[in-house]
Design a protein around this nucleic acid. Structure first.
Lengths: 371, 371
DNA sequence: TTGAAAGCGATACCAG
DNA sequence: CTGGTATCGCTTTCAA
């Protein structure tokens, strides 16, 4: 291994001082464009990589990141935030401040939150772009200003965002389809519910589901997706209608968190035990439905891990100036009655993280179920 | 936030020098037991936490860790090692050297490898204890000597090991059982194969499977586990016997990587399409079996993630003197025909990790499927 | 626009 | 046994 170049090396090579080199490399004001160019060139040829420890040690600056997410309607966003602060806490370098900005519902107040973060002069933003379109202008502005933005759960295309952390939606849909096919022995009509086909995340799940089903189980039939537009009553009513119009329905895949209204509709229509349910996410109200076999399986989207990874990517960029990956796509977990308890147990334990000092005894205690 | 105490603070509080404080805190020779006690007491009351950046900057020591695993019989251990070096590379602090020691088969040469690592004076060990019993003496010796040991994939109880990283075996078995129950509509006789009931990992999978099956699907019946003792021919022969003696067999859960011999036996016995297969792990030979529906589902044990987490735990302990968790238990991933391609695609991509500098364009490229 | 120098907190060595 | 001090590589301020 070649000894790595430091600021002094490039300063001496150029016959200048380390102060100038530093300013040149950081595009600070007060450096002639010629020396700046010479420095940057020399840094490249010497393969200069900053020593993060030294930087941290001498720097008094503290990084500020804004986390813009949905107010905890369900536990999903609470888990995402928990993952973020968990990862931040675990960080060796503790010069990081996290500001949480939340908005009450999809598309409501997220522009304001983003603007506020920008105005506050944060160094980076983690956001859930519930309405990518409306956020686009703000995100472009951030990226033009050199503020990295990481999207969680959903992507916001053409926004110059640094990275996106999400579940593989196509795979989620495909897994749901394959399971459904198996559960129904390859026959029957199935439905899919989603918020809106306009949302990439949802339409991809539908696409994955439909294409896998038609590919692997040609005898099965998928209905047109049911759009609930994130409104519970709409979801319930449309579901009732679905069950009335399609008495032959054998299965349904709910791609969003909105599975309870569908389940209630099925119950009220007395078709609950005739229809195989595959749902999404895991939250308290869903637990009894899984226990009672009303829901055969749910696709868990690992919100805590999404939060952890989002923070890691952003932090790595802020500290090293490198982006480990533009897209972190996680495989979803499958939760059924059989392994449900293991996930719940984990969720409980997770609220009281345990750390130990020194070489511990033989008593395992922490289960990283959601990892 | 209270300003954190540093060496100088505790030195001044005691009217001594930082050098003495340093030696006292590190149990270095040449400190009177009284001052050592005073220092340690004061450190505690001041809540002293060492500044890792400063330590790294001033220390010329490089950490050496030995990774003792099975030579790549299948891709499993290659993936584990890949995860380890991946995580090591990503580390900000780069004063780490990894030495890989491998052994050809289970229980063969692992004591020697462990002894060699100890003799070489490494600072920590990550190991797969294929024969926990035989390794026990060595591991205790390591822990007595203050050398932290992290187990991957399998635990080695009562060895003073620092931590264990593994898949939740009970949950794996339970998930397999619930799937099996669904696939078979709650009826039929099923079998389980494993290496040996003496191996905790395997017997737990069996236990999870059996208890979940009897709990959720009382009409189903589980046969006594079939032990193959890690010998392919034994596995094949016993499987043939099984199929002959139990023509009513409807499903089989293979808890180990040894699914190919079982599949071949089923094929040769002409029962392949009458038996639902749920297997473990994912490797090239299994791919066509999943594609052809011979295998309904496989439980993927995320070797890469296991490697990553094992390294993280060990590193954190070496650097911070803290163990983040004694037990990292991961939820397995379920792979079926529907989502198989997504996992394979990931495996390909993973061999050529991509990093980018600066704010990248809108072209997602990396899929962290195995995360 | 540039240079010089004072830290940051821990380690390691040399004197006493 | 203990104190003093140079050192690690970078940031930041003060002079020039």
């Amino acid at each position: 291994m070649i000894k790595k170049a430091k600021l002094l090396d490039i300063a001496e090579a150029l016959g200048i001082s380390t102060g100038t080199v530093h300013r040149a490399l950081h595009n600070h004001a007060g450096v002639s464009s010629v020396t700046k160019a010479r420095v940057q060139q020399m840094a490249k040829t010497l393969g200069y990589r900053p020593n993060l420890a030294a930087r941290y040690l001498s720097s008094k600056r503290t990084l500020r990141v804004s986390v813009n997410t949905l107010k905890g309607t369900t536990s999903f966003w609470d888990e995402v935030r928990a993952g973020i602060s968990e990862e931040a806490r675990a960080l060796v370098m503790e010069n990081i401040e996290i500001e949480y900005r939340t908005y009450p519902r999809l598309g409501e107040g997220e522009e304001e939150a983003f603007e506020a973060a920008l105005k506050a002069g944060v160094d980076g933003i983690i956001t859930f772009p519930s309405r990518p379109q409306s956020l686009q202008a703000w995100m472009r502005r951030a990226s033009r200003g050199g503020i990295p933005v990481v999207c969680v759960a959903t992507d916001a295309p053409n926004t110059g965002r640094l990275a996106v952390v999400s579940i593989d939606t196509l795979a989620s849909g495909s897994l749901a389809a394959d399971l459904m096919g198996h559960f129904l022995s390859g026959e029957g009509t199935v439905a899919v519910t989603l918020s809106s086909v306009a949302i990439t995340e949802h339409s991809e799940k539908y696409k994955g589901f439909a294409s896998t089903l038609s590919g692997l189980y040609p005898k099965m039939k998928v209905l047109e997706p049911l759009e609930d537009h994130d409104i519970e009553t709409v979801c319930y009513e449309k579901s009732r209608e679905l069950f009335k119009n399609h008495p032959e329905l054998a299965g349904i895949y709910v791609t969003t968190e909105a599975s309870i209204p569908v389940l209630n509709a099925a119950r009220d229509a007395h078709v609950l035990d005739k229809v195989i349910f595959i749902t999404t996410d895991l939250f308290p109200a869903l637990v009894p439905e899984i226990r009672s076999q009303a829901v055969a399986a749910t696709i868990y989207q690992r919100p805590r891990t999404q939060g952890r990874r989002a923070f890691r990517v952003l932090h790595e960029f802020l500290v090293e100036g490198e982006c480990p990956s533009f897209q972190v796509t996680l495989a979803p977990h499958l939760v059924m009655r059989g392994n449900l308890d293991f996930f719940l147990q984990r969720q409980t334990l997770e609220s009281t993280p345990q750390r130990a000092v020194g070489v511990p005894s033989d008593s395992p205690e922490m289960i990283d179920y959601f990892g």
